[in-house]
């Protein structure tokens, strides 16, 4: 069965490693913070200027001056810090953040990503996404395998304006975990009960399937 958004977040959380600073984008990536594996310590950075981001506040304790990059009210953990936007992006550009997780509208088989604009229809802006994908060593995209019209979002080449070039290392969708290398999507894991054929049929870009593909364990 295909995963829901929570399942995608749970699977990405398995990629977290002890001692990492992690930037989570808006949407599914934000949910990753709810599934930190036992026994490891990670700290979340939000690019508007906070390190050590905690859960949402209890009702009545919201602070208009304390938000994440999605403009949601948040809290901080012990040891948190605040800083200006230039310092925040120095952390990102300077590769002090070990992992970036973000959403996408399209990803290509060479790791290009598009997530900020649909010409003539929708322009929200890139926010911090271009800085994040241009600098981070380890970028995981969390997204659905197909768009609302049913078309594959894992493509030979992106049709939408790019956010970054050859930067995505891994994609986790409701159907699969895929690694991007040597100009192809390499199938690493399947969602429980999802067949390789289904993943193949919903992946427009070059898909490499080597041997038996295990199911995700969540």
């Amino acid at each position: 069965m295909a995963l829901d958004k929570t399942g995608i977040a749970q699977r990405i959380a398995q990629e977290l490693r002890d001692g990492w600073y992690v930037n989570l984008g808006i949407g599914i990536p934000t949910l990753v913070a709810n599934y930190i594996p036992q026994g490891i310590e990670v700290e979340f950075q939000s690019e508007n200027g906070v390190l050590g981001m905690g859960p949402f506040p209890f009702e009545g304790e919201e602070d208009a001056d304390l938000i994440n990059a999605g403009k949601q009210t948040i809290t901080t953990m012990k040891g948190a810090s605040f800083f200006d936007s230039a310092t925040s992006f120095a952390m990102i550009r300077g590769q002090h953040v070990q992992l970036t997780v973000l959403g996408a509208m399209e990803v290509s088989e060479n790791g290009d990503i598009a997530n900020w604009k649909i010409p003539g229809k929708m322009v929200k802006g890139m926010g911090g996404a271009m800085d994040l994908v241009a600098s981070a060593d380890n970028i995981i995209v969390a997204m659905m395998h197909s768009n609302r019209a049913g078309a594959s979002k894992l493509l030979k080449s992106c049709s939408l304006p790019l956010t970054g070039v050859a930067c995505v290392k891994k994609v986790v969708t409701e159907l699969a975990v895929l690694e991007i290398k040597d100009g192809a999507f390499h199938l690493i894991e399947r969602a429980p009960g999802v067949s390789v054929e289904e993943i193949q049929s919903k992946t427009e870009g070059n898909l490499v399937v080597n041997g038996t593909i295990p199911e995700m364990s969540l």
Binding site: E47, D84, S85, A86, S88, F89, I92, R93, D112, K117, M126, G127, G128, A129, M130, D131, A134, S135, P161, L162, T163, G164, V165
Partner: peptide, 28 residues
């Protein structure tokens, strides 16, 4: 890009006329 916007403001105030950044390479 947000980081470039922040740094371009900082540069303006710091007397740095321009700088190189990887953000946005290969895009519009």
């Amino acid at each position: 890009p947000q980081g470039s916007l922040a740094e371009r403001c900082r540069a303006g105030g710091a007397g740095i006329p321009a700088f190189f950044t990887p953000a946005g390479y290969g895009t519009e």
